[in-house]
Write a protein that binds this DNA or RNA. Sequence first.
DNA 1: CTGCGTCTATCTATGGGTAGGGAGAGGGGG
DNA 2: CCCCCTCTCCCTACCCATAGATAGACGCAG
Lengths: 185, 185
Amino acid sequence: MTVQDMKETILRTAATMIRSRGYNGFSFREIADAVGVKSASVHYHFPTKEALGAAVARRYTEDFLTALGPVDEAPLEVEAVQTRLHGQARRSLVEKNLMCLCGMLGAEVADLPDAVAAETRRFFERSVAWTEAALARTAWGQRVDAPARRRLALSTLAASEGALILARSLGDMAVFDQVDLPRPG
Amino acid sequence: MTVQDMKETILRTAATMIRSRGYNGFSFREIADAVGVKSASVHYHFPTKEALGAAVARRYTEDFLTALGPVDEAPLEVEAVQTRLHGQARRSLVEKNLMCLCGMLGAEVADLPDAVAAETRRFFERSVAWTEAALARTAWGQRVDAPARRRLALSTLAASEGALILARSLGDMAVFDQVDLPRPG
DNA sequence: CTGCGTCTATCTATGGGTAGGGAGAGGGGG
DNA sequence: CCCCCTCTCCCTACCCATAGATAGACGCAG
């Protein structure tokens, strides 16, 4: 296993742990055990927990935006834009019962080290920005002003994050699909 | 200070800590320091962290439902029902920058001791039940079926929890009010 | 004198983080 | 071709702080 593979494996393992148990719910030792190395080796690749957390969040943000695709290839229907966003949350929930990484970090944001909180914030800023831009290309988006598009973007993201929490808390993944996305208005 | 006052103080202190930092983000020692006793005294009132967490969640649920009021005194307009729910989240956010306790626990639910997870689930079950019942009294609620009312109840709660996460993550409480509640449809 | 509530003192487990050693790959000079 | 040096990467072994939790003593009120 090359060093890049090792870093990758650590990042993925950490991401999964944070998404199921939260930032305060994982440790270097657990990661090391899961990966098959010693905790000192994890420190070799990521000097501090803060650095690891921030790297995980940054990677997650990049993957998330990559999965959404370029704005200029986004759907031209409002509902399809929303579904593209919402579908990301849905997939991770039904496939692995995981929260959105930054939804999890967002809940804990008041207790996070600065660098991790900053990456969490960046995730939402960029996700909102993508959605606003995608909405601006739709027929509805061209009829309304920027604040209206922002409201719908925020509302859609909030619905996804909230739906994840409800479905997991209630122990019923079907709940996720019973949450309706906000409609443009 | 009577023993009941002491228990009360511990419950309130623990609730505030969980709401800002999560279940894994507080300790008996921190509570003891904040309250002005030793951690062994906290254990006297709540034998384990699991018991304390569950008691905090149960108390929160009761207070939450009390604040909503009896279903037969709930508003008769859909929007007013939603606003009564949403307003609870809003108040705690703007007054003290706190999450909904069970929104926080809901994010961490996969890592919670059984009793705490069970109380978290009960919070959502009862909150959804209250909202469904309140919606059933509205004119809209009487035109649609139970699943439709449930969908709106779940969607409204999800919007509130999601809005809390977004507002806190983005460090901008105004975001909370930019999240639109789902409309009956 | 009993018992409740708090204390001191301590246990064991685990947390993040560090120091320093050693194995192995790779490259240069003899 | 071989030796040696160096650098990378992971290891062992540890540090200290903090976690939840317990035992048993103390003081005060009834």
